[in-house]
Design a protein around this nucleic acid. Structure first.
Lengths: 188, 188
DNA sequence: TATTCTATAGAACGATCGTTCACTTTGTCA
DNA sequence: TGACAAAGTGAACGATCGTTCTATAGAATA
């Protein structure tokens, strides 16, 4: 049974958020020669898992991203080598980390948009909101998650649930952020 | 206008997936003394953004994770300093990266579970599926995304859409993975 | 203006870095 | 069995690392 060096270094990166040095890999892999490590790393670089960037080791997307498969109806969903695609959820969903945050959803006003209670939505505070966007808004001092709509010259909010009527602001309507995406966990 | 060193290093990490060395920070920050960098980094360590791990620099969760806010009804959603919480989407959704992949959803058979066409679902191939889980299954050579149900001793599949009837396997039913979560992007 | 504080400069240091050499062991296949 | 390839050992190297020292410049304070 050969030791799985790749699993070991991935686990290290997962915990430390950095790659180990060669010396650390000696311990990690249970080896005693840096040359052995050097060869292993060299192979990973050739495989495109790692790369040398400014003469320092860094992971590529392939190293820690997940493969993305397409569903082929009535066939096995396979990721052909040619059009392989990998992505990390953070990169996929978050455009600007410095202006984004997550919000745990309360209420059922957006169920028709597929946003349920306890889902997490990613909010970008710097994005300019377009009509039709789902936004985090403050309408007459009340905060809520709704569709932003424009009717002639008036701006108002609309739920994605027939139970709730459209909301027209009496005094003011502030948009605090645009909902970029939603994530929901089924199992833990 | 003071240069925003933190933004610079975050941008570096976002691109390279590693922290820069002190020498690289010199360029990055436009400084010419490593001592200046050393003090800046020291401050970040004190603030809990970075940490020394095995005498090497590594980011903490606070460095790159997003703040998670709770929605307070009729109040501003605020993250109090005491119960601050940060998380990355990858860590939140992916339990075991080595046995997981993403699948782009086709069809509307799971709309009632809030899974729409073109959503991405995270599939874990090693999880054992429980009754009621959403699974990626192969039923009589056809691949599909459905609820896994158990009726007495028989196992079958059920859509989350009234349009579709339950599926009982004629010959075989293989579960290839459990749907751990779903993500949907509204804006790009 | 004089004083204090903070941020940066500049140089020096030992420690660790990754690379490379020659050599040995192990496993595979004809 | 013999030959070759793959994987690991062990030592040496210059380069770069992060730390620490003292010194200087500018802003803040009084």
């Amino acid at each position: 049974m050969k030791p799985d060096y790749l699993a070991a270094i991935k686990q290290f990166y997962g915990k430390a958020k950095r790659l180990p040095s060669y010396s650390e890999m000696l311990d990690l892999f249970g080896l005693s020669s840096k040359n052995a490590v050097h060869k292993i790393v060299h192979k990973w670089i050739e495989d495109g898992l790692l790369k040398k960037e400014n003469s320092k080791l860094a992971p590529t997307g392939k190293f820690f991203a997940l493969p993305l498969l397409g569903m082929v109806r009535a066939g096995q969903p396979i990721l052909a080598d040619e059009n392989k695609s990998y992505l990390t959820l953070d990169e996929y969903l978050i455009d600007d980390p410095s202006s984004s945050f997550l919000l745990k959803v309360r209420g059922d006003s957006m169920v028709n948009a597929g946003i349920f209670e306890d889902d997490l939505v990613i909010i970008d505070m710097k994005r300019s909101a377009l009509s039709g966007d789902i936004v985090l808004a403050e309408i007459d001092k009340e905060w809520t998650l709704k569709y932003l709509k424009k009717d002639k010259n008036r701006i108002y909010l609309e739920a994605a649930n027939d139970k709730y009527p459209p909301l027209h602001p009496k005094k003011e309507l502030k948009v605090h952020g645009v909902v970029m995406g939603v994530i929901r966990k089924f199992r833990s």
